[in-house]
C-alpha cells in the first residue's frame, strides 16, 4: 500500500517572540520543528506500513530549510520525501496551499497509486485545520477528520473503518479508499527509528520539486494570486489598559492576604458572591 503524509515545518510556537517595535516575528533562536500534530499522522502511516507493507511518502511545501523536517521523517521510517519549494508559492493561503499539495499528490499518484493521504489535524502556527479538507475536496476524496483510530483496512475491497472524534461522541465511519485522514493528537506515539533508517535518512537524495516539477501549470492558482484571503494587518495583542489591583497586607501572611482579597472581590462584585454562595449552598 502507499500512503502520502503531508507535513509542515513550523517555528516552535511556544518559543516565539514578537519584536516590540515592528510587531514582526523574531525567529532568531526559535527552533523549526515538524508540526507536532503531523507526527501522529506519520506514525499512523508507518504503523499501517508495518502491517501491510508498502511505501510511505512524505510531502511538504516550504522553503529549502524544510529539508531538515523531511529527513527527520525519513529517520522515523518514511521511504520517500518530496520538498515542494518555489518562490511562486510565497503568500499562499490555505486554499492555494491545498491546491499546490493536491496537484503534487496527483503527480505522485502518476508514479505510484495512493491508498491513503494523511495530515495532522492542524498546524501550530496557522491553526486553521483547512489544508487537509482542502486537499480532499480538490482530489474528490472522502474526508475523515479528527480520526482517533483506524479500526479496519481492507486493501482488496478498498474499504476503511475509522473512529472519528465528533461533538459529543465518537463516530464509527466506513468509507472507500483512497481517502484523506486527518489524525487526532494523542492517538499514538512516534517511534524511535533504528540505525538503518537514520543512515538512510542522512544519505537520502531528497527530491526538491519546483512549481513545474510538481505539475502545477496554472500559476494563477498559487501564491498571492491564488489566495482569496489577504492579511491586511498584523499586530500584537493589546495590553489591558489597567494592571491588576495588587492585594497586599502588612505582613503578607497567606491567610490575611486571602481574607483581604475576598473582601475586596466581593465588595466590588456582589453578584459573584451570590453566585458562589448559591453553588456552595
Amino acid at each position: 500500500m502507499h500512503s502520502v503524509v503531508c507535513i509542515k515545518q513550523v517555528p516552535d510556537s511556544a518559543q516565539i517572540r514578537v519584536h516590540p517595535v515592528t510587531n514582526t516575528i523574531m525567529r532568531q533562536g526559535v527552533p523549526a520543528i515538524i508540526n507536532p500534530y503531523d507526527l501522529f499522522a506519520l506514525e499512523e502511516a508507518l504503523r499501517l506500513k508495518d502491517r501491510f507493507g508498502g511505501t510511505v511518502t512524505v510531502v511538504t511545501m516550504g522553503p529549502p530549510m524544510a529539508e531538515a523536517a523531511l529527513r527527520k521523517c525519513l529517520s522515523y521510517g518514511a521511504d520517500d520525501a518530496i520538498l515542494v519549494s518555489d518562490r511562486a508559492f510565497a503568500g499562499s493561503d490555505t486554499l492555494a496551499t491545498s491546491y499546490a499539495l493536491a496537484t503534487t499528490i496527483k503527480k505522485i499518484m502518476g508514479n505510484m497509486p495512493v491508498d491513503l493521504i494523511f495530515t495532522g489535524k492542524q498546524t501550530i502556527d496557522g491553526d486553521t485545520a483547512q489544508v487537509g479538507p482542502g486537499i480532499a475536496k480538490r482530489l474528490d476524496y472522502q474526508l475523515l477528520t479528527y480520526v482517533s483510530k483506524i479500526v479496519d483496512l481492507d486493501l482488496e475491497k478498498k474499504e476503511i473503518t475509522v473512529e472519528r472524534r465528533a461533538e459529543g461522541g465518537v463516530q464509527l465511519l466506513k468509507t472507500a479508499t483512497p481517502c484523506l485522514i486527518t489524525m487526532l493528537e494523542g492517538t499514538n506515539e512516534m517511534r524511535f527509528g533504528d540505525l538503518d533508517d537514520l543512515f538512510r535518512a542522512a544519505r537520502y537524495d531528497l527530491k526538491v520539486w519546483n512549481r513545474e516539477a510538481a505539475g502545477i501549470d496554472d500559476a494563477e492558482m498559487i501564491g498571492l494570486k491564488g489566495s482569496p484571503t489577504v492579511v491586511s494587518k498584523v499586530f500584537a495583542p493589546r495590553p489591558r489598559s489597567q494592571r491588576a489591583e495588587m492585594v497586599e497586607t502588612v505582613d503578607n501572611d497567606p491567610k490575611n492576604l486571602a481574607v483581604t482579597l475576598l473582601a475586596k472581590v466581593f465588595t466590588q462584585h456582589p453578584k459573584l458572591e451570590k453566585e458562589i454562595a448559591k453553588r456552595a449552598g
Binding site: G193, D194, D196
Partner: peptide, 9 residues
C-alpha cells in the same frame, strides 16, 4: 555502541 536499534557500529 549506540542506544538505537541495531546499535553497534
Amino acid at each position: 555502541m549506540t542506544d538505537r536499534k541495531g546499535g553497534e557500529i
